[in-house]
């Protein structure tokens, strides 16, 4: 089966965020593959191992996003496409339009991505791609089986989980718990450099910037106000616990 994995390069979750000239300072920030996308790539590879086929990784980002793509190739993906939108001024709409266009040029039975990215956390790109390609989508999937033209997916719903059946092709988004992503193997790292990595721009997809222009405009960036450290309640554990209960009742008036 042919599987497309959508990946995004994000800031390392440990990254310290600072502002420079009113924007996020990207200097010295280490970049990683979005962890939820790692689940997606892993699931794609598992399906390929079980059913045969190939995995194509598609990303939208600057040239440096090559690193995330190489990681996916080193994990075992077969080929990849990186679309550089040529501007940093993009939103989920932009990304989804580009991804959908890039994917529409491929053969696919399944499209899989992380359910959200840890940087902007917006959880909407894969869903938008499904809508553009007129495909059904199942979000926040923690278990996936593919069998004879359909997928059975267990997904998080309000207050529990649901087992959904969906015909292929479909879009699936990965939630934590779906799998344990493999580490790229040393051999995989060596092989990754020989695998196709197509770097293209909007015009290669027949798109112009106005067709994918962002709908959202960011007005300002700021850092959250630091939470002032509160007080440490002194005393032996039992004593402190009693004092804490009292403080929550009388001072914070919260219980």
């Amino acid at each position: 089966m042919k599987i497309v994995a959508l990946v995004k390069q994000t800031f390392d979750s440990e990254a310290k965020i600072a502002l420079e000239g009113g924007k996020i300072n990207r200097q010295g920030i280490s970049l990683i593959m979005n962890p939820y996308d790692e689940y997606a790539v892993e699931e794609a590879l598992k399906l390929k191992e079980k059913h045969g086929g190939e995995v194509t990784v598609v990303t939208v980002g600057p040239d440096e996003a090559t690193e995330a793509v190489r990681q996916a190739l080193a994990m075992g993906a077969d080929q990849s496409i990186l679309v550089n939108p040529g501007t940093e001024d993009i939103d989920e709409y932009t990304t989804a339009k580009i991804l959908a266009k890039a994917v529409s040029g491929l053969e696919y039975d399944l499209i899989i991505g992380g359910f959200r990215a840890i940087d902007d956390g917006s959880a909407q790109v894969a869903g938008r791609v499904a809508e553009i390609l007129n495909l059904p989508v199942v979000n926040m999937v923690t278990k996936l089986e593919v069998d004879g033209g359909k997928a059975i997916a267990t997904s998080d719903i309000e207050g529990g989980s649901a087992v959904m059946e969906v015909p292929l092709p479909a879009v699936i988004t990965a939630q934590k718990g779906l799998n344990e992503p493999r580490y790229p193997s040393m051999k995989g790292i060596m092989q990754a450099k020989k695998k196709p990595l197509k770097k293209i721009g909007l015009s290669d997809l027949g798109l112009d910037a106005s067709q994918v222009a962002a709908k959202v405009k960011v007005l300002s960036y700021s850092l959250p106000p630091a939470r002032a450290a509160g007080k440490i309640i002194p005393g032996e554990p039992a004593e402190a616990a009693a004092a804490l209960a009292k403080a929550l009742r009388e001072e914070a008036k919260i219980i």
Binding site: I32, T66, E67, R70, Q71, A74, Y183, P184, M186, I189, M190, A192, K193
Partner: peptide, 14 residues
């Protein structure tokens, strides 16, 4: 090289 960087990152994560 790109491979050496990826190896470093992979082993660090592991």
């Amino acid at each position: 090289t790109e491979e050496q960087e990826l190896l470093r990152k992979t082993v660090r994560d592991f």
